[in-house]
Amino acid sequence: MAILRSQLEQSEITIYIPPKGDYDTFRDDDHFKEKLKEWGLPTAKKEFWYKELNYQRLVTLKGYETYGNAGEFNTLVIEFQDGNLTCIHPAFLKEMQKGSFGKESLINLEEKDTLEEEAKTINTETVTPVEAPNKEKAAKPSKEPKPKTKKAPKIELPADKVHFTAAVKQFALVYNPFNEENDEVVVLENVQIVQENPIELGLAWCSHSKTLKKFELAPGDLLEFDGKVAAKKMGKGKDAPEDFIIDTPVLYKINNPSKINKK
């Protein structure tokens, strides 16, 4: 009875932010673990701690919402043991798994308030300007305006899932700050969105997931697949071998490729 009463009290004081409507769910265990790795959460866990300053509750991941111009950002949808759903940022849920969560937050909050008060005090102090002695300044030669370089027209990316053709260029490593490790990715070239008016993207990248690894990809392989594309520049790996480095900027990311066909 005491446990049930405690859960009821926690449920009543928890502030829930339920999903606005439909949200994405996990296709299978491989997809679930792939997303956990992307968010920096431990892949061996099925349950996670949701913490406040005076209590903690076990939750499970039900799915995630996507947002941003091309759906490149995620908000997690978690379920409490009483069945209530709420949304939470992946990085915040990751912080809640630390034993120091809560204590850290209070210390940081107090330090922040102190710094803000000091900044207000400094900004309200009046400063008397010092007049500089009059000196004749030498006339500077006028500079000719530099010609403006024309920027390439911005590509309007489709928000929905579309069909792609591409070729495997190479494999690369991207540093993941959530797990402080390098993640292997696939760099694609000659990427085209197949539609009535095809869109040429050039280079793009995607995670080298377990699904893709089943195809044993190699540079030069031609691919067809469905997926979503986002304007997200590929980062660099930390202490990556030369074979896993690409100097050319890769500005687009392919998310959740499916219906993959290797020619």
Rank of each mutant, 00 (worst) to 15 (best):
A2P: 04
L4P: 00
S6A: 10
L8W: 07
I13M: 12
I13A: 03
Y16C: 03
I17W: 10
P19H: 02
P19I: 00
Y23G: 04
F26I: 06
D30R: 03
H31T: 01
H31I: 00
E34W: 04
K35V: 04
K35L: 09
W39N: 08
W39T: 05
G40C: 08
A44L: 10
K45A: 13
K46S: 15
F48P: 04
F48G: 02
W49N: 06
Y50H: 15
K51H: 12
K51Q: 15
E52T: 13
Q56H: 12
L61D: 06
Y64F: 15
Y64C: 01
Y67V: 01
N69R: 14
G71V: 04
G71Y: 04
F73G: 00
L76E: 03
V77M: 03
G83H: 07
G83W: 11
G83V: 01
N84E: 09
P90N: 11
A91R: 05
A91M: 12
E95A: 15
M96L: 12
G99R: 07
F101E: 10
G102P: 10
G102Q: 05
L106K: 09
E110P: 00
E111Q: 15
T114V: 02
E116N: 12
E117D: 12
E118Y: 07
K120Y: 12
T126R: 06
V127Y: 13
T128N: 10
V130A: 02
E131R: 11
P133M: 03
K135C: 09
E136L: 04
K137V: 13
P141M: 00
K143S: 13
E144R: 08
P145D: 12
K146V: 11
K146Y: 09
K146T: 11
P147K: 06
T149Q: 06
K150D: 11
P153S: 00
K154A: 13
A159D: 03
K161E: 15
V162Y: 02
F164C: 01
V168Q: 09
V168F: 09
V168C: 10
K169A: 05
Q170A: 12
A172E: 07
N176V: 05
F178Q: 14
E181S: 15
N182M: 09
V185D: 02
V187Q: 11
L188C: 06
E189W: 00
N190F: 07
Q192M: 13
I193E: 13
Q195L: 06
E196I: 07
I199N: 04
L201M: 06
L201P: 01
L203I: 09
L203C: 09
A204V: 04
C206K: 00
C206I: 07
S209D: 08
K210P: 05
K210A: 15
K213N: 11
K213E: 15
F215G: 09
F215V: 07
A218H: 14
D221A: 08
D221R: 01
L222I: 05
L222M: 13
L223V: 13
E224V: 01
G227P: 05
K228T: 03
V229C: 01
K232N: 09
G235I: 02
D239L: 02
D239N: 14
A240M: 06
A240K: 08
D243M: 03
F244L: 14
F244H: 11
P249S: 08
L251M: 08
N255W: 05
N256E: 08
P257Q: 01
N261G: 00
K262T: 05
K263C: 00
